[in-house]
């Protein structure tokens, strides 16, 4: 089943979110408007708005209120992607030239800052202190996660705990907040919104682990970047950590560097795929998914709950 089918009942509202995003991209500066619109039109999974709207279904769902959260979270995600492309010196994302590739780093920095500000302008349409506390905490943690990722690059002596803390901050918290804030904006009770937070958290952890597995298991066409690129960039992900438990493999992986040629990288990918590192990574991802499914079990039966369960299961099986 395609991902979109699982939440087809949200289609009309998701289309409106898309329209809102395009309207928000409007700027007095034509270049800024073009850059922002290009980012929005490049698409993406829109997983955060989906989770916000689904979270909202657990309360008194009112699209006109919840849309501000959905739009703001997607804008924050986009702003961080624009800056990530500067960090990674990336020239292509989702098959399109990045903002930094088209207009240079300065324009990319300005565009990211502009989108971040737009997201805050949007979310401040809601005068709910709880929403701002959760979101601002998430944003600070997200930055800390990214800073830690840079700190830990090419550090082949890091442990599982460091990795899990990093992906929590980098990915899981924003998905967790998406689920929680949708519910908070819809006035759901605290217990429900907390459960949704943990659901999103576990799904986010699983999602990032799968992402890290796909770096080795998928191909350039599906990933939009060469296989093993995360490792080449020095990101020590779960499959690498597991593979490094064998000292001989660790010694070889420690030779990875940014300028490593394609053939040598293929060998490193082979080392990781050859043992049980991928299988064990899938197992850990699955454990997080099971935790997600368990926590949502106690929520009342609804279309949104079924959709969340289906999405969680889909994430475990996704190929790109």
């Amino acid at each position: 089943m395609k991902l979109q089918v699982m939440y087809s009942f949200l289609k009309s509202d998701l289309d409106k979110v898309e329209q809102e995003l395009k309207q928000i991209a409007v700027s007095n500066d034509p270049l800024l408007a073009e850059a922002a619109l290009a980012l929005i039109e490049a698409g993406g999974k829109r997983i955060r708005p989906v989770f916000v709207l689904l979270g909202g279904k657990f309360g008194a769902y009112q699209f006109e209120t919840i849309k501000h959260v959905a739009v703001a979270l997607e804008l924050i995600h986009m702003a961080s992607l624009v800056h990530d492309d500067v960090i990674d010196n990336a020239y292509v994302r989702r098959g399109c030239a990045t903002v930094n590739a088209r207009w240079g780093d300065k324009v990319a920095m300005y565009t990211g800052d502009y989108l971040f500000a737009k997201s805050l302008e949007c979310i401040t349409n809601l005068e709910m202190p709880e929403i701002h506390k959760v979101l601002s905490y998430t944003m600070v943690e997200l930055c800390k996660g990214e800073i830690e990722q840079i700190r830990d690059k090419y550090n082949f002596n890091q442990n599982l705990r460091t990795y899990l803390r990093r992906i929590k901050r980098k990915t899981a918290l924003l998905i967790a907040s998406s689920c929680q804030l949708g519910a908070v904006a819809a006035g759901a009770d605290e217990q429900t919104s907390k459960r949704l937070f943990w659901f999103g958290y576990f799904v986010g952890m699983s999602y990032q682990i799968i992402d890290d597995i796909l770096d080795f298991m998928s191909n350039e066409e599906e990933l939009g970047k060469p296989a093993g690129e995360d490792l080449r960039q020095g990101n020590i992900t779960l499959p690498v950590l597991y593979a490094m438990e064998t000292p001989a493999i660790k010694r070889k992986l420690e030779t990875v560097h940014a300028g490593m040629d394609r053939a040598d990288m293929q060998y490193m990918i082979h080392l990781i795929k050859d043992g049980d590192a991928i299988e064990r990574s899938f197992e850990l991802s699955e454990r997080y998914l099971q935790k997600a499914l368990k926590i949502i079990q106690s929520l009342p039966k609804s279309q949104a709950k079924s959709a969340m369960q289906s999405i969680a299961k889909y994430i475990g099986k996704r190929k790109f």
Partner: peptide, 18 residues
């Protein structure tokens, strides 16, 4: 880290006011 520092300080302003 310069890119991320800017993002981090922005996050701090939001957090402080929130």
């Amino acid at each position: 880290l310069t890119v991320l520092a800017g993002d981090y300080y922005s996050g701090l302003y939001y957090h402080l006011l929130a």
